[in-house]
């Protein structure tokens, strides 16, 4: 079976992740959506790596993994900070970005 199918699978996962970000108000769930999108991208990278027979795609996935880990730490830190300040993690609450 062609590894391209994994790329298609990655696209679907990516779309699901995006939908989660758009639709869920719980910050943690939305954040998990982001993680899913990142992992979808990783999957595509690994699939490409397989298709090209080169290891570089995997290495990229590694990097993404690392950065994602860093991102999770900071992101969750932010969520906690927001929760402390407002006692909620609903994304609709912090509307201070309002122009």
């Amino acid at each position: 079976m062609d590894p391209i199918n994994f790329v298609i699978l990655a696209s679907i996962l990516f779309a699901i992740g995006a939908a989660a970000v758009l639709l869920r108000r719980n910050a943690i769930i939305a954040f998990m959506g982001v993680e899913l999108m990142l992992n979808a991208a990783n999957l595509a990278l690994v699939a490409f790596s397989r298709m090209h027979g080169e290891i570089d795609g995997q290495i990229m996935a590694f990097f993404v993994l690392t950065v994602a880990a860093a991102e999770v730490v900071v992101g969750l830190g932010i969520i906690i900070a927001v929760f402390r300040a407002r006692q909620t993690i609903s994304l609709d609450e912090p509307a201070e970005l309002k122009g």
């Binding site: 758009l22 609709d92 509307a95 970005l97």
Partner: peptide
């Protein structure tokens, strides 16, 4: 600026 309603999710929607 009315479109900038401060809702993160609608910004994300715009992006998508």
């Amino acid at each position: 600026r009315k479109t900038q309603n401060g809702q993160v999710r609608s910004y994300a929607l715009t992006m998508v």
